[in-house]
Amino acid sequence: MYAQMVDTGVKSLKHRSEMSADEQAFMARIDNESKIEPQDWMPDAYRKTLVRQISQHAHSEIIGMQPEGNWLTRAPTIKRKLQLAAKIQDECGHGQYLYSAAETLGVGRDQLLDQLHTGKAKYSSIFNYPTLNWADMGAVGWLVDGAAIVNQVVLQRTSYGPYSRAMIRICKEESFHQRQGYEILLTMMQKGTPAQKDMVQDAINRFWWPSLMMFGPNDDASTNSAQSLAWKIKRKSNDELRQMFIDQTVPQLEVLGCTAPDPDLQWNPETGHYDFGEIDWSEFFNVIKGNGPCNKQRLEKKVKAHENGTWVRDAAQAYATKQQAGAATKKEAS
């Protein structure tokens, strides 16, 4: 999931009797599964939570271009380069689309980007891990886009209309990315040299746990998660989503002929789910705090691109203003 630990600004859930008439009507609509639209009344905290979640999601799409861009110039074949370039282009499009969804809540893209650049806004922890071999392009597609889909399929039913519609559109492309990523790995495992097979296992070893962390911390003691669920911004809890992801991914792992770096991973016939080992939450919170392997580089690169582009954006603006003025003068003259 591209939005982790989204702060709702709420310390405890309100009881219906504590709500204003507006809030009660709002909650009634949520309960009826009718979508909230931009012009509708909504509690301030709901609006703020949505802006945080949607922008975090958008930032993740944009920062996520970097680990994949790292291999774009070195893609091993023309076909793989075309696929990767198309995927990166899609991710950038997702970012743009999500910024537009956030704009319907009254916050502009520039403002949101500014929060990203100044380190105030977060993006998914997963993109702070380095991509170190070509199989990472497969592992990212399969595991990272895979984990994102599990979350986003559910978010298609999220209560805010524009966000829900963005998810429907984005999900189609994400599933394509996931299949493509898996196919990269499958090709290397089935037709590859021993060195290529080692790359695949190495990529899975490095991306397995960080992918599970994408769903965020455990459910217990998460007020934010509970509030988001009540508002139906979130539709399933972190742990439920993580379990769904593991259950669908392990059989695919077996088809690859690879293993997960988790000795406790095994099928539990009683629960009908896979059991898995304890996630290293200290690593997760460290990455969230900015101490992951690539936090600094990712943000620096983004900021540098933005700063290097200032004169270009200024020029485009100046040109547009001149054109408008020119058109106005022509109109007056005629």
Binding site: I62, Q66, G69, T73, L82, I88, C92, Q96, V312
Partner: peptide, 26 residues
Amino acid sequence: LCEWCANAPVLEEETALMNTSLDLFG
């Protein structure tokens, strides 16, 4: 043009540069 990836001045250019690169490789 691939070298521009994640370095473009605005997001719209990011997609446009990537798209042009795709066309040329195709």
